Amino acid sequence: MIDLIFDVIPQIHGGGNHDGLGAVKGLEAFLTFIESLTTKSPAEIFAAFMPGISAMDNIHPLLVHFPIALFTVFFFADTVGGLLSRPAWRIFATPLLYIGTFTALLTVAAGMQAAYSAPHNDATHAIMLRHQAFGITVTVLALLLSLRRYFAADSFLYSKTYGHFALTGLLIVCLTLGADLGGLMVYQHGVAVAPVMQKNTTSIQNQPQHEHNHGSAPHVHTYGINISPELQDSAPHAHSHNGHQHSH
Rank of each mutant, 00 (worst) to 15 (best):
T72V: 07
F151G: 07
L63E: 00
P10D: 02
A126L: 11
L106D: 05
D154W: 13
A166V: 11
Q198H: 11
D180T: 14
L184I: 15
P229C: 10
N58R: 00
G22L: 04
S146N: 02
L170G: 06
I34W: 08
H212E: 11
G15P: 13
L143A: 12
V193S: 02
F102L: 09
F66W: 04
G82R: 02
Y150E: 14
V196N: 09
P95V: 03
A152V: 07
L97P: 06
M50H: 06
H18F: 14
S234I: 13
P229Y: 06
A88L: 13
S146G: 04
N17P: 10
A192C: 07
N58T: 00
A123E: 12
I9N: 12
H210Q: 08
G111N: 04
H125F: 15
S234N: 14
T39K: 14
T94L: 10
Q205K: 13
A194Q: 15
G15Q: 15
G183C: 04
Q205R: 12
W89S: 10
A114Q: 10
P218S: 13
H244Y: 13
Q209W: 03
R86P: 05
I2N: 10
W89M: 11
G82C: 01
Y162M: 09
G20P: 11
E28V: 09
Y158W: 15
T72I: 06
N206S: 13
D7R: 12
E28L: 08
L181E: 09
L177I: 12
G100S: 00
I225F: 05
A43N: 09
F102S: 03
G52F: 09
A153W: 12
F49H: 01
H214F: 09
P119C: 00
V193L: 04
A166N: 04
S240N: 01
S117E: 13
Y98V: 09
F134N: 13
L171R: 04
A179D: 06
A126C: 07
A235S: 05
G81S: 06
F33R: 00
V140D: 04
A47M: 05
P95G: 05
I136M: 06
V173R: 03
T101Y: 12
T137D: 11
Y187H: 10
D154C: 11
F74M: 15
V64C: 07
L37P: 04
